[in-house]
Design a protein around this nucleic acid. Structure first.
Length: 430
RNA sequence: GUGGAUGUAGCUCAGCUGGUUAGAGUACCAGAUUGUGGCUCUGGGGGUCGUGGGUUCAAAUCCCAUCAUCCACCCCA
């Protein structure tokens, strides 16, 4: 137990963490270009925020939250998602008083007590954005376009973008009533889950994977028949803007999202190669959420992406990541007498901006060379007793297998001139 | 939360119907005329056979429980 991580959590190790660094750098660049600023909120919040914000009938809140009572008797919860916390921060810090809309992004761990599976963990990481203070359909399209741009920058292919409108407080009750009226006479044909859904959230019946339920729902009223005038116009406008950007999408009237706060636009991105957990991102508009959280009526929209699933998809598509960190220079000692000088030169290299390392296990010259090769060093700086007497060191090019003598005091300068400042074996600004 | 599969060295796996010190490849460490890597050869370290019970003269091998991983449901990122 002492050496076992908690279920559904992961250690991100060297060799793996470079993928995260790369994805994070793509995210920060993307957000910079789209005009989104980072917001960092706590990993835990008052439980009440999620009960009210996400909705206390949702599965996420009912059975997947990590809820604790702290030492002061307060109920707190590890965040299962970050839209409600961002809205809370928007209100608490009075961001509504500044220029609108407010465009924010976040990146960090979320927690859901769920049975782990491929692409599903108890602690997982999301990148997400939120736009608060505008109900322009062009923003909906921007947010969707931004998500698609992100996947494209990573090189992901074969994704499906599903878009739908789930209505608003004006037309959704009508939609639900019509669906209940349709399904009630056919109650016995529905699967066990859908019998429950009819009561809780009949929209979800349309989303059921059971053959019988699909057939039963074939002639069910379509959302677009029941959308109110303004919802319909909004959706049409979102479509027009997506068309302007030439984004491929499919209207999926069966798309329903599991969080209560969604209104109007809802969307989801599916990948084929992430196992059963095919969704690698999704989001939608939540024009009622800010008011629910105690603010004045303010529109909002956002999305979230699961980074573990993004990585899974990248791996199964064979996408590799640049810039694995390798030492550029490995300092090798030959003879006891060179240890001190080698140590000094090592640090001089580092001060000069060169990534350098040495052996710390008292290995033989031969073993040090072997280690340097394995570590992927491009140069071995061999500090030999004999040469040192003449004030020289050897610079060996590991890929070419050639070496030359250089004055010891100039070794760092020599290497800097030869390769410049470096990162991951490459020049910066290359 | 429900159903199913799996669990042997760091990694990938072998180990027949239970029978003496549990193996291979790879990785790691060290050597192969004592100052030079990537190939080859030799040797070495490393395994509570997921964990805990039980059956048996005897269990990695059978039974039960538990934990973990994977798959499906559910849900979602």
């Amino acid at each position: 137990m002492l050496t076992t991580r908690p279920r559904g959590t992961n250690d991100i190790l060297p060799g793996e963490v470079e993928k995260w660094h790369y994805i994070e750098s793509v995210i920060r660049r993307l957000c910079f270009e789209y005009g989104y600023s980072e917001i960092r909120t706590p990993v835990f919040e008052h439980t009440e925020l999620f009960l009210r914000g996400v909705g206390d009938t949702t599965d996420v809140v009912k059975k997947e939250m990590y809820v604790f009572t702290d030492r002061g008797g307060r109920s707190v919860t590890l965040r299962p998602e970050n839209t409600a916390p961002v809205v809370r921060a928007y209100l608490e810090n009075k961001l509504y008083a500044g220029p609108q809309p407010v465009k924010l992004y976040y990146l960090g761990p979320m927690f859901r007590y769920d049975r782990p599976q491929a692409g599903r963990f108890r602690q997982f990481h999301q990148f997400g954005v939120e736009v608060l203070g505008s109900d322009d359909p062009a923003v909906d399209a921007e947010v969707i376009a931004m998500a698609m741009d992100f996947y494209a920058r990573l090189g992901l292919k074969g994704l499906e973008l599903h878009v739908n409108s789930v209505g608003c407080p004006v037309c959704r009750p009508l939609m639900i009533r019509r669906l209940r009226e349709y399904f009630l006479p056919q109650f016995e044909r529905l699967c066990k889950n859908c019998k429950d859904r009819l009561e809780k959230n009949p929209l979800r019946i349309l989303d059921c994977k059971e053959e019988r339920c699909r057939e039963t729902g074939e002639n069910a009223p379509v959302v677009f028949e029941t959308l109110c005038e303004s919802c319909f116009k909004h959706f049409e406008s979102v479509e027009r803007h997506l068309d302007l950007l030439e984004i491929d999408y499919m209207v999926n009237p069966r798309l329903v999202r599991g969080l209560d706060y969604y209104t109007h636009t809802a969307f989801e991105i599916m990948a084929e190669d992430v196992g059963a957990q095919g969704s690698i991102g999704g989001g939608g508009r939540y024009n009622g959420l800010i008011e629910t959280c105690g603010g004045s009526p303010t529109p909002g929209i956002g999305y979230a992406l699961g980074l573990e699933r993004i990585i899974l998809a990248m791996e199964s598509q064979g996408i590799t990541v640049p810039g694995i960190n390798k030492p550029l220079v490995f300092v090798v000692t030959a003879g006891e007498g060179s240890n001190g000088e080698a140590y000094k030169i090592l640090f001089r290299l580092r001060s000069a901006g060169i990534s350098a390392d040495k052996d710390y296990l008292g290995r033989s010259l031969k073993a040090q060379m072997k280690f340097a090769g394995r570590a992927g060093a491009r140069y071995a700086l061999i500090i030999g007793e004999e040469e040192l007497k003449k004030g020289l060191v050897l610079v060996r090019d590991m890929t070419r297998g050639e070496q030359e003598e250089v004055p010891a005091g100039e070794a760092a300068g020599y290497l800097v001139r030869k390769i410049g400042n470096c990162e991951g074996g490459k020049r910066i600004n290359d």
